[in-house]
């Protein structure tokens, strides 16, 4: 058994912000990607004009702008979210363990499965930064199509342009209870029946995590963590 002062579950934007605030923290993340809540959902973010309260969140916002991953119209390149968050975390020397899943929580002890096998982590304080389930969620796809399609609803889907002309983040609403098989089947069936104006659009990818809409954009999630949001167990 390994002991830590604090453990944060989830190296997403909220979790990384929270860990940077707390200090002396072990962060455990089930995936191998930082910021999965946005990077793996294809949630490209909205409400970018709301300034973060915390300077360190503002720093990440500046990184997005400096690397031309966010333009003045709020168009983004989701591909930038994780690598820039990794750079942000490395600068702060956060102790992050990737591909480490919590199997069960018993008091102050976590049964986890890491890349080296099963083990028990114990911490004085445990914070859960994983996204919270809600009555509705979104499965977001990345699609290519004719340039110039305006943002907005088209049939079952809500389109939003990415930074690249002719590339769109496409949202489909699901019930909070939908599993992956049902949601994926629904997406493909509705995509096959998409409106005529979208005939030339091609689905490239679907997100590999549901968007649970906990925060409007990654900077807001990071800012929330830096301000101390994130449930202490």
């Amino acid at each position: 058994m390994k002991e830590f002062d604090r453990i944060v579950i989830g190296a997403n934007f909220l979790g990384c912000g929270l860990a940077a605030r707390l200090g002396r923290v072990k962060i455990i993340e089930p995936s191998c990607v930082l910021g999965a809540d946005f990077a793996l959902t294809f949630n490209s973010g909205e409400a970018w004009d709301v300034a973060p309260e915390h300077l360190e969140a503002a720093e990440y916002l500046s990184m997005l702008r400096e690397h031309r991953a966010l333009d003045d119209d709020g168009r983004t390149a989701v591909a930038a979210f994780a690598p820039l968050l990794a750079a942000w975390c490395r600068k702060r020397e956060l102790d992050i363990e990737l591909s480490c899943s919590v199997v069960a929580i018993e008091g102050q002890e976590l049964r986890v499965m890491g890349v080296d096998g099963r083990k028990i982590y114990r911490a004085g304080e445990i914070y859960d930064a994983m996204p919270k389930t809600k009555p509705r969620k979104f499965l977001i796809g990345l699609a290519a199509g004719p340039a110039g399609l305006e943002d907005g609803r088209r049939g079952d889907f809500v389109f939003r342009q990415s930074l690249h002309p002719g590339e769109y983040y496409v949202k489909l609403e699901c019930s909070g209870e939908d599993g992956w098989e049902f949601a994926r089947r629904t997406w493909h069936q509705r995509w096959a029946r998409r409106p005529e104006e979208l005939r030339d659009c091609r689905l490239l990818l679907l997100g590999t995590r549901f968007d649970l809409c906990n925060y409007p954009n990654p900077v807001a999630a990071l800012d929330a963590g830096l301000r101390g949001e994130g449930g202490k167990l």
């Binding site: 690397h67 930038a80 994780a82 820039l84 990794a86 750079a87 490395r90 992050i96 591909s99 890349v115």
Partner: peptide
Amino acid sequence: QYDPEVFSQTMLETAALHVLEDYSA
């Protein structure tokens, strides 16, 4: 990939390969 520290640090270090000067290009 069997050492949690080396695996995690290497993934974070090599994420730098995907940091681009201009993501819009």
